[in-house]
Amino acid sequence: MFSHGALDFFYVIIFPGFLFTAVVGLLSTWVDRKVTARLQWRVGPPWYQPFADIIKLRAKESIIPYGSNRAAFIIAPVVGFAAVILTSTIIWIANIYPQSSFVGDIIVVIYLLYLPSIALIVAGSSSRNPFGAIGAAREMKLMLAYEAAFLFAIFTVVVKNGGIISLGGIVNYQLNNGDMLAQGASCIIAFIVCLLYLPAKLAVAPFDIPEAEAELIAGPYTEYSGVSLAIFKLTKAMLLFVLPIFVLTMFAKTVWTPWVILWYVLVLVFIILVKNTNPRLRIDQALKFFWLPILGLSVVGIILASVGL
């Protein structure tokens, strides 16, 4: 019916890729802002607010600051954006066609998930702004903090299912043997570690250290305006959707049941509640938090998994 290329284009641009992820991601940021407003006893913005923000930013002037590295300044947001689109496509295709031979494995997804953070670091360093530079340095330290625990948590799943590292294989395994979460204590521990990883990766409170608005204005985003800022905002909104779906794919084969909506909303509400009830940590506190208790927890998880619990 369609050629292979047209189908790939459809996957990347429309359904699991750009359009779908952007719309759901922007609606998720609205849920975030609305719930935050209700928690503070306010009314909050209307549902189209994130869309209006993006449309407005797209129409505004894009300024490239004098003395910045022009190429890096312009390319950085696009790289992060492309990586998120690709991640979303890979995760959803793996969920839709778990039988297909290769659409990417966990390693690819983990590498692609690095890219938005690296784009932020490049953006902050290239913009010739002290706030941007400090924000980039903090983002780097935050990445060092959370990645080790997250990798251990993901590889707990791999150890548990007998060494399957393709996403489709993990979905298949869960279709045959039940959810990963129901497989034992090690997976529950890994899931908790992943839940704590989410706010850090998304850079929301208490881990909004790179863009702490009271100290760093807007961190790496400080010099950005217009289209580039719109792309950054969109990337962040899409990550808010893609990351929980990735974690849910790893631990609960939910994507083709209506339960996916419930699971996703639960994870989103968890992120929002943590965000609204915790003050921002200092970077050293975040590092200590992830390297001592959380990394310890994930190591316990992987040991439990290797003895079969």
Binding site: Q40, V43, A52, K56, E213, I217, A218, E223
Partner: peptide, 21 residues
Amino acid sequence: TPRFDIERFGIVLVGTPRHAD
């Protein structure tokens, strides 16, 4: 503040003139 809550109209206080309308 919650009494007036201008975020209803999408108004947000930003920290840098680059983001300002």
